[in-house]
Structure formats: C-alpha cells, structure tokens
Design a protein around this nucleic acid. Structure first.
Lengths: 331, 331
DNA sequence: TTGAAAGCGTTACCAA
DNA sequence: TTGGTAACGCTTTCAA
C-alpha cells in the first residue's frame, strides 16, 4: 500500500480510503489510485486488515471424530453437509476453514476459540463433546452445532427430529408386516441415541407379536457395519427388518444381507436415516428418513451470522420426513 | 498477552518466549507463565502472530466451476477429494480454507494470491482456467493443480493418466465384444478432453466393424446426463456401450438405460472414470478407471509444501488402473 | 479533502 | 536471562 501511495503521490490513508470506496476521496484521485492498484496487481493484505478490524472474515467448520476415530472425512453425510455449508458461507463473502478433530481432543474448542482464527464456529455432530460445547457456550456466543437437541442444553443447535423420524421409519416397517426389527449402529452420539429412542417407542406401540428392541452394535463405517450384519445373520437371533442409524451403514447392511443369500426386501427389509444421494442410486433403492441438508446448512449459517452480530438465537429442529422406496416393499 | 505479562510480573517478550518454549526463559518462570496462561484460558492471537511472521498457516483449496456452473459442491468426486485433502492438510498443522469460484471469475486467482490469505493454493480441476493458472504461475510459486498435464504447461499439476486410463477402459469394452461405443460427457475441461482422446485412440485401434467415435454431449451433472442418455436412446444411432467421462454420469447412464427398458450390461455396457466409492455400491457395480485419490491428495499436498519451502517441483502423473466390475460383463 | 499518528497483538532484534 | 522497542500492513481518529 505504501508503494501505491508513493506512486500516486498521496498518503497511505488516502489509498486506504480510495480502495474502500470512501466518498471522502476526490473522484479523480480515487480513480487514479484504483487504476494504479489494478495495474500493479495490488490487493489489500487481509491479515493486516483483519488484525486492525478485529475480525477474520472466516468461519470454522469443525468435525469432531471422537466417537468414531476411523470414520473418514469421506463419509457421504459429512461431505454433503460440507458442500452445502461451503456454498452458504462463501456466498456471504466469508472463508470456510475446515478442521477435523481427532482424539485426544482435550481442550480443542477453547484453543480454537482462543486463537481467534475465525469469527464463528460451526460444529458438525456432537460426537462425545456435549460437555465441552456446553462449557464453551457459556462465554462464547458465535457457536452453532449440528446435532440432536438435548434437555437443558445451552448451546444453539440445529438438527432434524431424530426421534420422530426414527419413529416413523420403524412404524412403517411394522405396517408392512415386519415384527422382528433390529437397530443397527451405535448409540453414543446424541443424535444416534435419539434415533434409537424413536425405534424403541415405535416398537412399544407395535401390534402383538412385535419383538423386543435389539441392537446390532456397529461402528458407523461401511466395513464395520457390513461385518456386524454378517455376524448377526450367522449367529444372532433371526430378524426380518433392519433400521440403521444412517444410510451409509444401511447400505452396508443390504450388501451383507444379499451376500448371506437372503433377499432385500423379501427376506429382510432395510431402512436408513439421512437420505444421502447414494440412497436413491443403490438397488433396491433405500427407504430412509430425509433430512433436508441444504436447508439445514442454510439454517446453521443463518443462525451463526445472527450470533456473530450479537443476537441470541434459539435452537432449531427441522422436520424429518419418511421417504419410502424399494428396500421396505411389503412381501 | 499483556495481561499475562502483568500477572506474571514480566515483560511481554518473556511471555512470548515462554509460550514458544524458548530455552532462554528460566525454567521456573516458564512454567509459571504456562500455568497462568492455561488457567486464564489464554491462547496466542493467530492473526497478530501471522502478521508478524508473514504467514497464515492456511492453505486455500479452490474449486473453479467455470465449465459447469450448475455442478454442486456435492459431487462425489470433489467431495471425496476434499475429504482427503482436509486430512492431509490438517495433519500438517495447517488450516484448509475452502473456496468455490463461480463465473464470472475474472481475476479471481490474482485476487486470491494478492490477499495473502493463505500460504499456498491447491486448485481442483482446471475447468476453463488453464490460461489464468499459466499466468499466475509465472510469479507465484506455491500453486498446485489437480488436473490433466498439458503440453508446454508451466504450473505444477497432479493428475492421473487420463488418456491411458480411458484407452484401457475402451479397449476393454472392445475386447468384450462391443463395437458401437459412445462417449458421454463434455470435452471442454482438459482432463475430460484427454479422456476423450483415449477413447478415440482405442477405437482407432479397434477391430473391423468398430463404429466411429460418437459423443453424446452432456453437462457433468446426474440429471443432465440422465436426460441426455434417454434422448440418445430414443433418437440417436444405436450403441451397445457407453464410456462416460466420470462415474457420476456413468451411473446416471445406467439408470437411463434401465428406465428405457434395456439391460446393463446385456444390452448396453457402461464404464466410467474415477472409481468413486459409489461405483462399488450400485447394481450392477460399475467398471471404471481408478484414480487413487488418497495418494493424489497426498501428492498434491506434498508438492505444495515443498513449493512453499521454495523448491521447484515438477508435475506428477499417477497411474490410472482399470477396475472391471459387473457393468461391462460380456454378453 | 488530505495527512500524521496511533494502535490492532504479536515476535525478534539489540542492549543490558 | 530479561526488557524495551521496532516492525508486520492496515484503518481510523484527529487535526489541518
């Protein structure tokens, strides 16, 4: 900037004003400066500008992977969410700073906040970090979390109606005549826990002959879920339907069932959760609970920017809609 | 930092040194300062630190979408690549700043470089930006591009052997008895152009009775490709195989073929390019050309960091391996 | 309408 | 081993 000032024969102050489009600068002078900057390829140094302005024009997007160290950042759900977030954030002229947090995670949130690397933080998935989020929210406003809404929670979260969505999916399985329905997945993360609760509620309201809840535990990765379902088919009690905590593992379940010589949906029906794009592409196509991720992403970003502006925003719960496809067709 | 200094009864210099673990600070004093900082939740302000150190500890990852404005950031290939890049970059203690560039893009690269928001730039896909990249590379070193390597190119690129991979895929189709093979997709982006050239070369070397090259033009989105293939089946000349520029549109082609009452692979064989995870999950599973994206991402990041350190690195071409699955089974 | 100067929060040089 | 001071590149107040 000093260079430009010297070339234009004015002070740095004037250049700064001209570049900011200030009406204080004489029009002719302003245009001369603008032209000079353009010709010399000068762009304001954003670090210096941000230091002066006490902001960063960046938003951090964080994915804590505490509950699932092996879960790669290639998981379709995360990745689809990231795409939508990137769209929303960059549209607003902000940068999106992507971070992945692996165990041991001790103090990660405080460090991130303290470093002031970004003007706000979006956390995707509570993972095992509910307590840390709760603690941070006491003194740090611009924080929004994608996940389940918990009782007495103080941080701002956005998520779908996990319990209701799961309830509808499992009720649908019951309506199509299934009676021995297992839950596939983990129940540590709050969202997954809520889906499990919806599953339990649906079974409790099921007709006579409905089997008790039964969990086939599986890490939330494709391979782990595949192995878990194969083992369950070989060794465990019989079942005629699977409700999976996510689409990704639902699709693994379908493969495992087919590989075991059974048919989907005739022998075992499968339903998932998320409605990732993949769910429409597999054969048979997957019945699932849709979360409108684009809307979710937009809501997250909206709320975050309102918080950056100092507003106190409430959490939002989005509808979870059952999408019936081929994998749960009646026999 | 001034606070901490006052509380510890030392100067800011000493606090800075202690926090940096400098051996110059007396051990007792250092530990006292560290404890104080921990207790008060003090973390060094990264903007100020970066301004002083003339670096950002961030890498920009840019996706220019010039050739395909509608292409969402949810495209499986991009998104899988992003995941791997995020892994590699965060592992090195850097932040990953994600940007999406839409038309009109005039001057985006110079602005990005000029703003000094990041220490280096990774561009995913040349799109229509070959010239801009070429110009930027003349004066800006830390720039690495995922894409095809072009003759007389000066910027550093990493990509798979597009021509060779396509050649192998189409040769494989010929070997399984297909003779009327169409190319599905666009040929504007250099990588796609190279794949098209491999297709042409394979046909030129085909046996008697091999039909001339024929392009079914389609934007690189699932829906556009689906429509294009349906129209081609309804109106165009007959074909018994499709070589698609990417897996995403190959999968759309499969759906379109099935929806038209034909069978894959019996009536029409389909092969794609990329080997996204999805390719293994569809039925029939998709024959494709594998690009090892994890290795690709690692190479991109390696080269970028070497360039950040001032080294001049050459471009890298990675092997492209044919993966035969069900969608090209012989009749 | 313009310029000088202060200050954003660090780090690093130089002196003590 | 420590502290004072300058400097990183910018914006904004205050004064002219």
């Amino acid at each position: 900037m000093a260079d430009i000032a010297r070339l234009a024969g004015v002070s740095a102050s004037t250049v700064s004003r001209a570049l900011a489009g200030s009406p204080l600068v004489a029009k002719a002078k302003r245009e001369e400066i603008l032209k000079l900057a353009r010709d010399r390829g000068y762009v304001v140094n954003s670090t210096a500008r941000n230091l002066r302005l006490q902001r960063t024009q960046q938003v951090s997007v964080v994915i804590p992977l505490g509950h699932e160290a092996g879960q790669p950042l290639t998981d379709p759900f995360f990745v689809q969410m990231l795409g939508h977030l990137a769209d929303e954030i960059t549209t607003r002229g902000y940068g999106m700073l992507l971070q992945k947090i692996l165990p041991p995670m001790e103090g990660w949130l405080d460090r991130l906040i303290g470093s002031q690397r970004s003007d706000g933080i979006i956390v995707i998935g509570q993972s095992t970090e509910h307590k840390a989020l709760e603690a941070a929210a006491r003194h740090y406003q611009p924080l929004v979390v994608w996940g389940g809404h918990l009782p007495r929670q103080h941080y701002c979260s956005v998520g779908s109606d996990n319990t209701g969505g799961a309830l509808r999916a499992v009720s649908h399985l019951l309506e199509t005549g299934r009676r021995r329905i297992v839950f596939l997945g983990e129940t540590t993360a709050p969202e997954m826990r809520q889906r499990y609760e919806g599953y339990v509620q649906a079974l409790a309201a099921g007709p006579r002959g409905t089997a008790e809840p039964h969990v086939v535990p599986a890490h939330m990765t494709p391979d782990a879920a595949y192995d878990a379902v194969r083992a369950a088919l070989r060794e465990g009690p019989r079942f005629d339907a699977v409700f999976a905590a996510t689409d990704v593992i639902a699709i693994s379940a379908m493969r495992a069932i087919t590989a075991s010589g059974l048919r989907v949906p005739q022998d075992v029906a499968v339903a998932g959760y998320d409605d990732v794009w993949l769910a429409t592409q597999v054969t048979p196509s997957l019945t699932t609970v849709r979360q409108d991720m684009q809307r979710g992403a937009r809501t997250l970003v909206d709320l975050l920017f309102r918080r950056i502006d100092g507003e106190e925003t409430p959490s939002a719960t989005m509808p979870a809609e059952l999408v019936v496809r081929e994998s749960t067709a009646p026999r």
